[in-house]
Design a binder for these strands. Structure first.
Length: 867
RNA sequence: GGGGGCGUGGCGGAAUUGGCAUACGCAGUGGACUUAAAAUCCACCUCCGAAAGGAUUCAGGGUUCGAGUCCCUGCGCCCCUACCA
């Protein structure tokens, strides 16, 4: 027996698998399809432990499903465009392409060293022109469908990355998702994809995603942010108080509180603001609020809450339900990009309005009263406004009785209430309002003022305006010779910038913005089904047969960004007639983080453990098994060197056990450590094993049962991704088998053919069970120790017999009043009646004559006697 | 503020439908082997107790024959999100 040498074994079998092409997909071989996918990495350096975890989980699923008889698509690629490559290029005086492709080579080597079963012939790199040309093609397809829009709006600008960002990429307290710099607001003309057209469907179809974590679905639902309510039109009064024909519309979820509107608010960025105050005494104060809001990145917080500021504009609007004149204010807490940018303030029913009213001395008339409110007696049924100001310490935003609300007084108010409906109906009849649904989701801003990305295929012509690049002119190739260290960008290349207008043929200018990298990752899972297609992004027949992805595995950080964008792309491509399914990922597994001393591993904190290092020291199999064992995949994993070494010990024990079972162990026997050639049991005080005596026969029986039980357990656990307990069960089987070998003499086993066959069968089972997790170790044992000539990874998953897994006898706990007082052993499958009798007999002494009131029998488990 | 999740030995964690709490591993302790150590093997290893026995899944209450699991209250922790009208 050779000693376990991971370095030699792993190199040898990786070469063998590659040469045999066992991971290369053979399409349409008659087996059912299974598509397992892990989120592809960004090539910013070598792989980190989070990648190792993500891809280990995916690899176990892939190998397990293959052994279960599926034709498994298990691809890998790189999300290769983006900022870090630009920054690194400037720092290292090289180019983004050099940096990116260098890291891809490094990561590819690391992935191979970890023994992942990817079909490398299908690798997709998003910065390859053969890939991104189809991203441009899809952009033009979306253009055709009316899903592309160029518009001017207040956008998020990262002053460090020198580019705009999508709403989803502004994180935390208004920071850039990539560099953490405070984002600024800028009014700019940019390219958008109309994801909002799919808002309702993106929300509704979350219900279809039964294989997604509730948490992720909730996060997406919150992000989409559907609110039901109404739009209300307020008529603007001129400066002299006369009526104009101009209206300002608000969105509200509480139309029932409309009678309590005592002031009207505009966002500082609202286009009307300037116009209202121009040349008036109010201009100065209002301008102050507007300016402060523009620099709101530096807003101070007071006691965790922002101080609200605002200013009166000197103008009024008319409340459509009661004709009341309402002062118009500008307030910094009103957001331009939610609703209409204008708000009807109802301070008695909204905490923020309440706070603002108190601060500026504005009235707070009550309109919806909570139960038991002292005002109920005074105001019940009162239609006109008699109380202008409540004495409350805070607003009441719950449901309640409507008062001081004209004809709607006495109705029940609240979100989506009868009162709300009645007010909407009244407004609709007047033509001053309508029921409305508002979404928080904004259109997806996809243009980036960066070089290292997919060029937006658009041309600006002085005569023809904005012209899409004709499909026949694709791809728009990204020039590779841009020198970022000299401050160059796409506009620096005349041959890129200047182009003949596709319509009129005159000199025109190319768009120099590139697309958000998230557009590249929004459809890569489709490309894997047909990665070399030169005529189309993908082939409908292939996507139909492989998608949706059966199992997608990746980090929770993509809960909104990537997963929402991909869902949108899928739906849009479906509507383009290119796909026939609604959702890209049927099942989603979000793996937890890898931590060290309770902190997330990160380069900046300097607390990283590099997978490469661990592989070098312990081997890929040990790293993989450790990652799977230490925590369930969706929980955070605390790194522990001791734990890693424990797993290493287990792999050695497993290795020796298989050899022992086959009679191949010799001096490396599990029990060779104590006295040469003698079972350690002797030293441990057990009688020396002489042959297959009664004790070893009993052990053999136990072992057979355990074999069937553990195969069942490991199968169930892998199906449910409980890899940690699957490994625990394998450890138990290993321990049971060691116990059996300890009490039975090797010579006697070798002399008994039935015994030898059983031992061999067990060894084969063990190797097949561990194969998805430690593929190299398993292959070495399978081919070298067991003498097989075909890869273990092409074998069938072991089967088991539930009947054999059941013990002949089971131990039944006898409880008295719910506490375990005794145990009896009965034949398994004993009938309930018998069990009851046996239990009562066994408990007679304990009961001391007390008559049982009730006896509960749980078959095969326990009997509870209630006295 | 809103939403989601969690709380089990010294540690990571198990308990699949309400049915014997603490599987498996780490750390620790003792033993065998060794001149010795490491490695290996064996045994012990929730707490109190000499033992018999008792207590124990953050705390308190409830439902139930029976609760780590379900319900209520409180405490603590984590994650997401946030002037969203």
């Amino acid at each position: 027996m050779q000693s376990l040498d991971p370095e030699r074994i792993e190199a040898e079998w990786q070469a063998y698998w590659e040469e045999q092409g066992i991971d290369t997909l053979v399409e349409d071989d008659g087996r059912p399809h299974y598509y397992t996918l892990e989120m592809f990495p960004y090539p910013s350096g070598d792989l980190h432990m989070g990648h190792a975890r993500n891809y280990t989980i995916g690899d176990v699923i892939s190998r397990y499903k293959r052994m279960c008889g599926y034709n498994v698509l298990h691809p890998m690629g790189w999300d290769a465009f983006g900022m870090p490559a630009e920054n690194a290029a400037i720092k290292n005086n090289s180019s983004p392409a050099e940096f990116t492709y260098g890291n891809i080579a490094t990561q590819r080597a690391s992935l191979k060293r970890l023994g992942f079963s990817y079909d490398w012939s299908r690798a997709v790199i998003t910065s390859d022109v053969d890939y991104y040309r189809w991203g441009q093609w899809i952009f033009l397809k979306f253009w055709e469908m009316g899903l592309v829009e160029r518009k001017s709006s207040a956008v998020n600008w990262c002053p460090s990355c020198l580019t705009v960002l999508a709403n989803e990429q502004v994180v935390g307290d208004g920071e850039c998702w990539r560099c953490g710099t405070k984002v600024q607001k800028k009014e700019l003309e940019q390219w958008y994809l109309k994801i909002t057209e799919y808002a309702q469907e993106l929300l509704d179809d979350l219900d279809q995603l039964t294989g997604w974590p509730e948490r992720v679905k909730q996060m997406q639902a919150n992000w989409i942010g559907r609110s039901v309510g109404a739009e209300v039109d307020f008529t603007l009064l001129a400066a002299d108080g006369t009526t104009t024909d101009q209206t300002v519309t608000v969105f509200t979820t509480r139309p029932d509180t409309l009678y309590g509107c005592s002031f009207f608010l505009l966002a500082p960025e609202h286009p009307l603001v300037k116009e209202l105050v121009a040349g008036t005494p109010y201009e100065k104060q209002v301008a102050k609020v507007v300016e402060a809001a523009a620099g709101s990145t530096s807003i101070e917080r007071q006691g965790g809450e922002r101080q609200k500021t605002g200013a009166f504009t000197g103008r009024y609007v008319i409340n459509p339900v009661n004709g009341g004149q309402v002062p118009v204010w500008v307030a910094d807490y009103v957001l331009m990009d939610y609703g209409t940018g204008a708000v009807m303030a109802v301070p008695s029913g909204d905490e923020r309005d309440f706070e603002f009213a108190r601060q500026y001395g504005l009235p707070i008339p009550p309109v919806v009263l909570p139960e038991n409110d002292p005002l109920l007696e005074e105001l019940a049924g009162v239609r006109d406004r008699v109380v202008e100001d409540v004495k409350w310490g805070q607003a009441y935003s719950g449901p309640g009785l409507m008062v001081q609300s004209g004809q709607h007084t006495g109705l029940w108010g609240g979100k989506d209430s009868e009162g709300a409906k009645a007010v909407i109906d009244g407004l609709a009849a007047m033509g001053k309002g309508r029921a409305s649904v508002n979404f928080r989701l904004r259109d997806w801003l996809i243009s980036r003022q960066r070089y290292w990305g997919n060029p937006i295929p658009v041309i600006y012509c002085e005569d023809c305006g904005i012209v899409p690049v004709p499909v026949s002119d694709l791809p728009v190739v990204l020039p590779m010779d841009i020198d970022l260290t000299r401050g160059e960008g796409l506009a620096s290349r005349q041959e890129f910038l200047h182009v003949d207008c596709p319509v009129c043929g005159r000199d025109a200018r190319r768009e120099t913005d590139t697309m958000d990298t998230f557009t590249c990752s929004s459809w890569y899972y489709l490309r894997y089904t047909d990665p070399h297609n030169a005529d189309a992004p993908f082939d409908r027949a292939k996507t139909d047969s492989w998608l949706p992805v059966d199992q997608y595995t990746g980090g929770i950080e993509h809960a909104i960004l990537h997963l929402l964008y991909s869902r949108f792309f899928t739906k849009a491509l479906r509507d383009a007639g290119l796909l026939d399914f609604d959702e890209p990922f049927a099942n989603l597994l979000t793996q937890g983080m890898v931590k060290l001393d309770g902190e997330t591993m990160s380069k900046s904190k300097g607390n990283v453990v590099a997978p490469e290092e661990v592989v070098g020291q312990y081997g890929a199999d040990v790293l993989r098994l450790y990652i799977l064992f230490m925590a369930p995949p969706d929980k955070d994993l605390e790194w522990s060197k001791e734990g890693l070494e424990g797993i290493q010990r287990f792999t050695v024990r497993f290795w020796r056990l298989v050899h022992d079972l086959l009679g191949l162990a010799g001096e490396d026997s599990l029990f060779a450590g104590t006295r040469a050639g003698q079972p350690a049991a002797e030293a441990g005080g057990l009688p020396a094993a002489e042959g297959l005596g009664a004790e070893s026969r009993a052990a053999a029986e136990r072992l057979l049962r355990e074999r069937h039980r553990v195969v069942g357990k490991v199968t169930d656990d892998i199906e449910r991704f409980n890899f940690n307990t699957a490994i625990a069960a394998l450890m138990e089987l290993t321990n049971t088998a060691s116990g059996y070998l300890r009490v039975s003499a090797a010579a006697a086993r070798a002399a008994d053919p039935a015994c030898q066959a059983a031992d061999r069968e067990l060894a084969e089972t063990l190797v097949r069970l561990i194969a998805p997790m430690t593929p190299h170790l398993a292959e070495e044992l399978w081919q070298k120790a067991l003498g097989k000539s075909r890869s273990v990874h092409l074998e069938d998953w072991p089967s088991y017999d539930a009947v054999l897994a059941r013990a002949d006898e089971v131990e039944i706990a006898i409880q008295v009043n719910g506490k375990v007082r005794a145990r009896i052993t009965v034949p398994s499958g004993a009938p309930e009646d018998g069990l009851r009798e046996a239990a009562l007999a066994a408990a007679a002494e304990l009961l001391a004559g007390a008559a049982p009131k009730k006896v509960i029998v749980v078959a095969g488990k326990l009997v509870n006697i209630v006295v």
